[in-house]
Amino acid sequence: MKDWDRHNRIAEFVRNRRKKSDLTQIALADMTGVGIRFVRDLEQGKPNLMTDKINQILLFFGHTLTPTPISNETRRNLGK
Rank of each mutant, 00 (worst) to 15 (best):
G62Q: 03
K2S: 08
T66L: 02
D30K: 14
K53M: 03
P69C: 07
G33Y: 05
R18W: 03
T51G: 01
E73G: 10
G62A: 08
P67C: 03
G33R: 07
G79P: 01
D5T: 07
I54Q: 00
L28M: 07
F61I: 10
N55V: 05
G45R: 00
P67Y: 04
M31G: 07
Q56W: 00
R6E: 14
F60Y: 15
N16Y: 10
V34S: 04
K46V: 13
V14N: 02
I54E: 00
R9L: 08
D41S: 01
H7I: 02
D22G: 13
L59K: 09
G33E: 08
I10K: 06
N72T: 07
F13P: 08
R40G: 08
D5I: 12
R17E: 14
N55S: 07
R40Y: 06
V34R: 02
K46H: 13
L49W: 07
R37T: 15
G45V: 01
L23W: 15
K19Y: 14
T51F: 04
H7D: 10
M50A: 05
Q25T: 14
P69A: 13
V39I: 15
L78H: 04
F60E: 01
H63A: 10
P47L: 06
E43I: 12
D52M: 00
I57M: 05
